[in-house]
């Protein structure tokens, strides 16, 4: 039965379903218990599943990921909440040197079914360290799968897919879109959901491909709506590692132009990698260089400046215009 859910509620419902289906699924993090998380994404889970399965951890991020690794070694499937993007970094060692490498280190003897949920991105007027987009660090690390969601439907299914994956999955949640709603058929079968690694054409078009993910998908769709001169095809990436290049290149071969947008700084970002690969594989189809529209290569500014820092509708449209200037 379709239910109208926000992204935050959809993740909550997905977590609940995963916990009902598999007693090995645990939720852990700071304030995820009685409070239900600072964004209430784990709301009511503590009450319904108990403190052994919904663990309020000490305030130490490395400890969260490090003990999650140990729990996974014992056969559990921990879903860790990192409270905010900028607070991930104390857990970087455990994530990059241990979690990501454990399978290969063991030559396949071990699996690391651990999910790191990270609310990310800006636009909420927050203080420092609460608005960042660190996804490229994770995508640069082999052994991790990196995904993000742009709507409640994907939020509901992809959190469950992340939990059932035997690989560590970093699950980025677009915090400024937590309250965006959509109809979700929560009774459908998980097996029928679109694969976690696949990109999605969110809006078909013919003149230019606009690749976006997470919070920028909504902006990209608004750009496609606003641009009356060009037919923009919006691709929602969904998976940042691996990237579904087949969907992107098929689109670019039709449109001949590509703009990639994200909230993260442009340099060395996801967009840079996509630009390089698409240039390599679609060189003869491209009518213009690949254009990147992202944040500046500066630290995330004070919130009164974030509307200038983050790419918005106009900056995306400007990028599209630049793609047609060739």
């Amino acid at each position: 039965m379709p239910t109208n859910l926000t992204i935050g509620k959809a993740i909550n419902a997905g977590l609940r379903r995963a916990m009902e289906n598999d007693p090995k699924v645990l939720v852990m993090g700071e304030d995820v218990g009685r409070l239900g998380g600072v964004f209430r994404v784990t709301d009511q889970l503590h009450k319904d599943f108990g403190a052994d399965r919904v663990i309020d951890t000490p305030l130490a991020e490395s400890g969260i990921v490090g003990t999650a690794i140990g729990l996974a070694l014992r056969g559990y499937r921990p879903v860790c909440e990192i409270q905010f993007d900028g607070f991930f970094f104390p857990a970087a060692n455990q994530t990059f040197t241990q979690l990501a490498k454990m399978r290969r280190r063991s030559a396949g003897a071990l699996a690391m079914p651990v999910v790191l949920r990270i609310p990310y991105g800006g636009g909420i007027g927050a203080v420092e360290h609460h608005s960042e987009s660190p996804e490229a660090y994770f995508a640069h690390t082999a052994g991790l799968r990196v995904v993000t969601v742009a709507n409640a439907v994907d939020a509901y299914w992809m959190i469950q897919q992340a939990i059932t994956s035997d690989d560590p999955v970093v699950f980025f949640e677009p915090k400024r879109r937590y309250y965006d709603k959509a109809e979700v058929d929560t009774d459908a079968a998980l097996a029928d959901a679109a694969p976690m690694g696949a990109a999605r054409v969110a809006r078909p078009g013919t003149d230019v491909t606009l690749v976006a993910y997470g919070p920028m998908v909504k902006t990209a769709l608004q750009a496609a709506e606003a641009d009356t001169d060009h037919s923009i095809e919006v691709v929602d990436l969904r998976s940042l590692s691996p990237v579904d290049y087949d969907t992107i290149t098929a689109s670019v071969r039709r449109t001949g132009r590509l703009v990639v947008t994200h909230e993260a700084p442009v340099s060395h970002g996801i967009g840079a990698e996509i630009a390089a690969r698409v240039t390599e594989s679609c060189f003869y189809s491209l009518e213009a260089p690949v254009i990147r529209v992202g944040a500046f290569d500066t630290p995330y500014p004070q919130s009164r400046l974030e509307e200038h820092y983050l790419p918005d509708l106009d900056r995306v449209l400007d990028g599209v215009d630049r793609a047609f200037a060739y």
Partner: peptide, 23 residues
């Protein structure tokens, strides 16, 4: 497995022990 990054395995052991409790 041997763990080379100093101290990392202490958390793995602790998490594993938390799993033992839950079992």
């Amino acid at each position: 497995l041997y763990t080379i990054v100093i101290g990392s395995q202490a958390l793995h052991a602790t998490g594993y022990a938390m799993g033992v409790q839950r079992d």
